[in-house]
Amino acid sequence: MSQFWERYVKPAFSQAKSNLLQLGSKPRGALLWKRVTFLVATPAIGLCMINAYSGARAPKPLPPFVKYEHLRRRNTRFPWGDGERSLFHNPHVNALPDGYEA
């Protein structure tokens, strides 16, 4: 294993390190990162937005409510509202101890 490391892996890391050091010192390095930003990052962000918005349009149906003893326990009531809903309660997703809100 050490021969493999000395012969293949270590020279590759040192070559990559020297390439990165040279890239930062040359004036064209800024041009490279500008191109990477506009040609790679911007389309990637656009694809992520399309993915997020397409998933947001089709809401998934809620699974059937099963009342387990170890879930949604309220030993102490919340200090706001009726005491059953958490601070970030979402009636479309979060269930109360008795079931989903209608």
Rank of each mutant, 00 (worst) to 15 (best):
M1E: 07
Q3E: 13
Q3L: 11
E6N: 14
V9C: 01
V9L: 08
P11S: 04
F13E: 15
S14H: 12
S14Q: 15
Q15L: 13
Q15F: 12
Q15V: 11
Q15R: 12
A16C: 11
K17I: 00
N19F: 09
L20Q: 00
L21F: 00
Q22C: 02
G24T: 05
G24A: 06
K26G: 00
K26N: 04
R28G: 01
G29D: 05
G29F: 03
A30N: 00
L32F: 13
V36T: 10
V36I: 15
V36W: 14
F38E: 15
V40A: 14
A41G: 06
A41Y: 13
T42A: 12
T42H: 05
I45W: 04
I45D: 04
I45G: 03
G46Y: 06
C48I: 05
C48S: 06
I50E: 11
I50C: 11
N51D: 08
Y53M: 10
S54P: 02
S54G: 03
S54W: 07
S54L: 01
G55S: 12
A56P: 04
A58S: 15
P59F: 05
K60N: 11
K60S: 15
P63R: 15
F65S: 04
F65I: 09
F65G: 05
K67N: 08
E69L: 01
E69M: 01
H70T: 03
L71V: 00
R73S: 02
R74V: 10
N75I: 02
T76A: 10
T76I: 09
R77M: 15
F78Y: 15
F78M: 14
F78G: 03
F78I: 07
F78L: 13
P79Q: 10
W80K: 12
W80M: 02
G81P: 08
G81E: 05
G81L: 06
G83M: 09
G83Y: 09
R85V: 02
L87D: 14
F88G: 02
H89A: 12
P91L: 07
P91K: 13
P91W: 09
V93A: 08
A95W: 05
A95D: 14
A95S: 15
L96H: 08
D98W: 12
D98H: 13
D98N: 10
D98M: 04
